[in-house]
Design a protein around this nucleic acid. Structure first.
Lengths: 349, 349
DNA sequence: TTGTATGCGTTATCAC
DNA sequence: GTGATAACGCATACAA
């Protein structure tokens, strides 16, 4: 495939005996240009199949009209939806998206972010990997680096709290609180928590919601019912086995990390013949598609993912508008919604 | 957010009292440059936080190092996986991806493709929308346009057959054939087909596999058991209701279009109290994650989606290598795999 | 209204 | 080995 010579504004200009600048003006609707020659220019541009060279244009204008997105995994429902939302907004504005996945690895994340900086993207949108420990020194230097280059940085969902950037998050604590309250309403007495890596703020917040709900309802926090680091399906299953082996096992499990974790719980329950939701209530997090398909269907929390993507993208353009009067740090919190399904409905209403 | 002035090779050059050309050579490891000054250049580049301006570089080199991908929906498992596969390969090569979704609309697809051409991408990778009728005249002009611009075009999965491009597809006919044969083995006698829009080759091929399997096993093709245009969950459910209302309803349904369609079948069966797989066998297509989570789990066909993405990307780089001796048209066919689950296992072995 | 000149940041081709 | 110079294609300030 030979990269053919594309037609440029020079080609059009020389054919019409005008200067490239006139062609440029005509094509961009900027500055003065005779109406009839303008028509002519547009017409021949069409004929010669002219396409503006965005590279040159952006180089000249000093912007790339490109936004970089870094997520742990593209093919995870939540992130795919957020990306779809971002795409919908940016596409209309003529911006392009560069998508990177960190695969939950810190190194790959750093590499991806650096690539984006290299690409001179106008904005980096990121949800950090599970390995990105925001507490350790310098562990977020790659993000600081983005800011140092004068590139807008927007974090969503999994954010590094201490970095002063634009953020779009869920009210995780509130959502967890509601989930636990609902389970208590359903008569569950010993509610276990599968928690995620506590270096990530979202998982700390979800745990807080859990603790808060127990406290508010006068229920004790039982240490052995809190399982650390159970954020995948496998780890969720493992944690469940541990919980069910206790002298006093729980009668409900809140898989606060993800629906995948909840799925692990469900599978262990099914395998060991435990009735859900009668003997064991289960609640997940994220409203992945599959949660309404399992048997029984899984109660979970919807994060309005597509909407979250749109919000992020809109935030960028909005901040771009009033670039002078801008706050460096700004957080938009979206209230997630508890989706009650069979896995926690012990009482029929 | 003020777009700060980035450091350029001029900055480095002037600081070190050398010329930009030397800096460029040092940074690119091209041509001669004194070892010690080279070290010095590299060091100060690091210090000044220099990042090459890819826009300028690519403009100069006449390539964008960018690949455009157009899929019907980003947040559909199959496509998300293909994209993940593509990303994995292209990322290593230093290429960027621009992702567009057509939302299954012809107009949006045309618009997306044109955007990519505008962006001067080096390659367009596409799986066409359901509205893109390859038979109608000029309906694929936007794809021809890509080729006319000297841009590599690779189609995957849903391809426009008559366009001479690189293609990566599944052997749909073979997969369907195997699925039907399996169902016949399980003793199903009246197997219905939910077919997809026949303007798309993949759906024609899947139908062919169905017809071929029936023929080979000496079974008649019963017209009323073939339902047109049942390619979404809703349409799948609708078709199922129609089928179950027949005087002689089918004892199995092959949702050849997608697992979503199969899900529609399953839901109708559950709602009307029909036993799956005893009274009704169900087979889907694509091996979406949820198919192993439903109750009963759904027999389906795995398309090796991530692998497909990698294949597509590798194909591009491979063809790029030997750009001279290249065949314009080339098709790679991946053999999909039948995943047998509960929804068709009537006979316990 | 149109043309001229210049620069965006790099890289490649020369000549030195 | 190194440096000057042109060119990639476009957009704009300024002059005409």
């Amino acid at each position: 495939m030979k990269p053919k010579k594309r037609t440029t504004i020079y080609d059009i200009a020389s054919k019409l005996n005008v200067t490239p600048s006139s062609v440029s003006r005509a094509l961009n609707n900027t500055g003065y240009v005779n109406e009839t020659t303008k028509k002519l220019i547009l017409k021949t541009a069409e004929e010669l199949n002219y396409k503006r060279n965005i590279l040159a244009s952006n180089l000249r204008k000093g912007e790339s009209k490109t936004i970089g997105v870094v997520v742990p995994r593209i093919n995870q429902n939540f992130f795919a939806n957020v990306i779809a939302g971002i795409e919908e907004v940016t596409y209309k504005k003529g911006y392009n998206l560069i998508i990177c996945q960190s695969n939950e690895e810190y190194d790959k994340e750093v590499q991806s972010v650096n690539t984006l900086v290299n690409q001179h993207v106008d904005c980096v949108i990121i949800s950090i990997s599970v390995e990105t420990n925001s507490d350790e020194t310098n562990n977020c230097r790659h993000l600081q680096n983005v800011l140092d280059h004068g590139i807008q940085l927007i974090q969503f969902d999994r954010v590094a709290d201490e970095l002063e950037t634009l953020k779009v998050i869920n009210d995780n604590e509130q959502a967890s609180y509601e989930a636990i309250s609902h389970m208590i309403d359903q008569g569950y007495k010993r509610i276990a928590l599968l928690e995620g890596p506590q270096n990530l703020a979202i998982f700390r917040q979800r745990k807080n919601g859990y603790l808060l709900a127990l406290e508010k309802h006068g229920m004790p926090v039982i240490d052995e019912l809190v399982i650390e680091n159970a954020w995948t399906k496998e780890l969720g299953a493992e944690g469940t086995r541990k919980l069910l082996g206790l002298a006093e096992p729980p009668d409900a499990i809140f898989a606060s990390t993800s629906d995948f974790s909840a799925l692990g719980v469900l599978e262990v329950a099914m395998a060991t013949g435990i009735q859900v939701p009668q003997q064991l209530g289960i609640c997940g997090y994220s409203n992945e598609d599959f949660t309404e398909l399992t048997y029984p269907s899984i109660t979970t929390i919807d994060q309005y993912s597509v909407n979250m993507g749109k919000t992020v993208a809109n935030l960028y353009f909005q901040e771009r508008e009033n670039a002078d009067t801008v706050a460096v740090s700004k957080t938009i919190s979206i209230k997630p919604k508890l989706i009650i399904r069979s896995s926690t409905q012990r009482l029929k209403e």
